[in-house]
Design a protein around this nucleic acid. Structure first.
Lengths: 150, 150
DNA sequence: TCACCTAAGTTCAGTTTCTGGACGAACCAT
DNA sequence: ATGGTTCGTCCAGAAACTGAACTTAGGTGA
């Protein structure tokens, strides 16, 4: 299998991974959620090849995860903003952050804290069931083919 | 920046992405959560180079995400099982699945359904606040440097 | 007016990584 | 003896990534 074929698999992970599943794309999304919007800022923060920044930003724009919005004319300059589809990735990003916090934080603790404005507390994300609202554990879930299976 | 440097960043996303953040590793984890345990099964299901399977499985074992457990002697054969650290990735995998279900499912619907045994319902994951238990939206969160910041 | 600066790319040679396919090791079944 | 299974390794060629220079379109200061 090749990368391009991932998008055609009857599997939501494969389809998502085809868009967001490489190292630099995930790092770009992290920065986007931290408020980074400009090409130069992504490039400087990540310190990777401009070619890759261009390519990844274009892919995310093509997929509707980011929108390219002009913020000045003469000369035209654009910034990259998360779309609603992009904002929907927040649980993915937070789940990854939380796993890193649990398993790779040093003695000092987590590099970043997240405060939930609604309640005012520092929090970590908890995955709950949409139906009974209880926290869900991997072993309590049964997976089976759905209507969109191949 | 190079891949190896990601693990040394004062950022939980970078550290996590250094381990799980490439296309094939995420696909291997998907299969692991679906019950796949053997080298041949991973290779056949993914249809990618055996070299990559070997390399990725070894990385995941080194990082304690999978454990290499012998299931027979003469000749010794191993299977790869999710460790508790690996099972902690379930929210990451489910968040990715859910994003794919929302934005890439065809007319037919989701390729896979997930039943929460505790309540018996098909569900999707909801990210909630560990403190007030309310669902969390990206715009309700304020991020700031934590004790482990660089 | 001229030199220099910024932002957002593009181009390209050289390096690293990935692929597909063959091969190897250690055993089992017939 | 021949073929099958499982889990790899090895290698040449293809694809992806890197770093550095270059481009475009305009702005700044002297």
């Amino acid at each position: 299998m090749k990368w391009e074929d991932l998008a055609d698999q009857p599997c939501s992970i494969a389809r998502s991974v085809a868009v967001i599943g490489d190292r630099w794309t995930l790092m770009i999304l992290r920065d986007a959620f931290l408020g980074v919007r400009r090409f130069e800022a992504f490039q400087t923060r990540l310190g990777i090849s401009r070619t890759i920044i261009t390519e990844r930003l274009n892919l995310l724009v093509d997929e509707g995860v980011l929108a390219k919005v002009p913020y000045q004319d003469r000369p035209v300059r654009h910034e990259y903003r998360l779309t609603p589809k992009g904002l929907d990735l927040y649980p993915v990003v937070m789940a990854i952050v939380h796993w890193g916090d649990r398993h790779y934080a040093g003695e000092a603790g987590a590099p970043l804290l997240h405060r939930h404005k609604a309640c005012g507390c520092d929090f970590h994300p908890v995955m709950t069931c949409s139906e009974c609202h209880a926290p869900v554990d991997a072993r309590e879930v049964e997976t089976r083919a759905g209507p969109g299976a191949g």
